[in-house]
């Protein structure tokens, strides 16, 4: 299981990295979304996978999975939602204002 998830994380990071290196704003934003998915799974995995019941004490299980990374990831999901929507709207405004979503063209406009 760990190996499978590790490979999944690798794939997410790889594609996320590839996307943020491209020139289209939308792809860059999608890339950051993938990177945060990858980071969330990475946090999960470092604590060990399936090492017990979900961290709900009502289950009265002998062992629970680690609740700490889950709390961290929950925070992270919400924050990345906020950040993603912000850069999304930034991209949207940039396009409306400047008429392009190409990073290279944006850069040239800045120089003028």
């Amino acid at each position: 299981m760990e190996l499978l998830v590790a490979i999944l994380i690798g794939v997410l990071f790889m594609i996320g990295t590839y996307l943020i290196l491209t020139r289209r704003l939308l792809r860059i934003i999608l890339g950051t979304v993938l990177l945060s998915h990858g980071a969330h799974l990475l946090l999960m995995t470092t604590a060990g996978l399936k090492r017990g019941a979900p961290p709900l004490l009502g289950e009265e299980a002998a062992a629970y999975t680690d609740p700490l990374p889950q709390a961290l990831i929950l925070t992270s999901i919400v924050i990345s939602f906020g950040v993603t929507s912000f850069i999304l709207v930034l991209a949207y405004r940039t396009y409306k204002q400047l008429g392009t979503d190409d990073m290279e063209q944006l850069r040239r406009q800045e120089d003028e």
Binding site: L56, G58, L74, V78
Partner: peptide, 8 residues
């Protein structure tokens, strides 16, 4: 507080 869920 006791089951999955919460403010978020």
């Amino acid at each position: 507080h006791n089951n999955p869920g919460g403010g978020f």
